[in-house]
Amino acid sequence: MTAAGEVISDFITDQLETVRARRSSLENRGITVVTSSGVLVTLQFAFASTLYKSSSDPGLSTKILVAISGIFFLAAAVAGVLSNVPRRIFHMNPQSLSEQVSDAFWDAPDVEARKAVAAIRLQVLTSLDEATARKGRVVLIAFGLEIAAIACLASSVIITVFAA
């Protein structure tokens, strides 16, 4: 392989490692959204329980905001789970290597083998990068939903405090 070919092959391999690390990070962030939404919805239930045990009526706007925040927390948790759903990505088919282990190809110059391996890695990289970008969008949506839920819950607390 030429020097340029080696550089390109190494670059593709490095990019594969980077995208795999990014994908793993996004999956961990998705789990974090699920966990934090669970904790925050527990606090929401405690707040709602306190509201309904108090002698005064919390008011319609507070009830609506608490309900909406619960829906947003649920949606955020679902999005967090969806960010960890396995996606279909291109993987090299091991049967496609049967030609490369034939006698005709086995003794060929290594330039052809390196080029074939780099092409396969590039296909995997393209597929993995697209799947990772989708995961990133789902995680971003999950965080947005969680922020919306927190805003609704905080608003209901503020309304309750000032109404008292």
Rank of each mutant, 00 (worst) to 15 (best):
L128N: 05
A104W: 11
P109E: 13
V111D: 13
A133E: 10
R23H: 00
I64V: 14
L40G: 01
A116R: 12
T18M: 07
R87P: 06
V39W: 02
R137Q: 10
P109V: 06
Q123V: 03
S61N: 08
L43H: 06
P86H: 04
L65K: 02
T50A: 15
V34Y: 01
L60K: 14
R87M: 09
L125M: 05
M92Y: 05
Q95Y: 12
S102Q: 14
S37D: 06
I89A: 07
K115I: 09
S49D: 15
A116D: 09
K115M: 07
T62F: 01
L40V: 02
H91I: 00
N28S: 10
G59T: 00
G59C: 02
L43F: 15
T50Y: 12
I89T: 11
S56A: 15
D107T: 11
V41Q: 09
I120S: 13
P58H: 03
S83Y: 03
R23I: 00
N93C: 11
V111F: 13
A131D: 05
G38P: 04
R29H: 11
R88T: 10
L26G: 01
E27A: 09
S56N: 12
F72L: 07
K115H: 11
T62R: 08
T18F: 08
S96Y: 08
S37P: 04
L97A: 12
I71L: 15
V85N: 03
R29S: 06
R87S: 11
I89Q: 08
Q100W: 14
S61F: 08
A133R: 11
T62G: 04
E17V: 08
T32A: 15
W106D: 10
L97N: 15
S56H: 08
V117C: 05
L40F: 06
K63R: 15
I120T: 15
T18E: 12
A133G: 01
K135A: 06
L74I: 07
R114F: 07
K115S: 14
I71V: 11
F72S: 07
R134A: 09
V66F: 05
L122A: 14
K63M: 11
Q15C: 15
S25K: 01
L74A: 12
V138W: 01
S61R: 10
V78M: 06
V101D: 08
I64W: 02
S54D: 14
V39S: 07
S24A: 10
S37T: 06
Q44S: 15
K115F: 09
S37N: 05
Y52Q: 02
A75C: 03
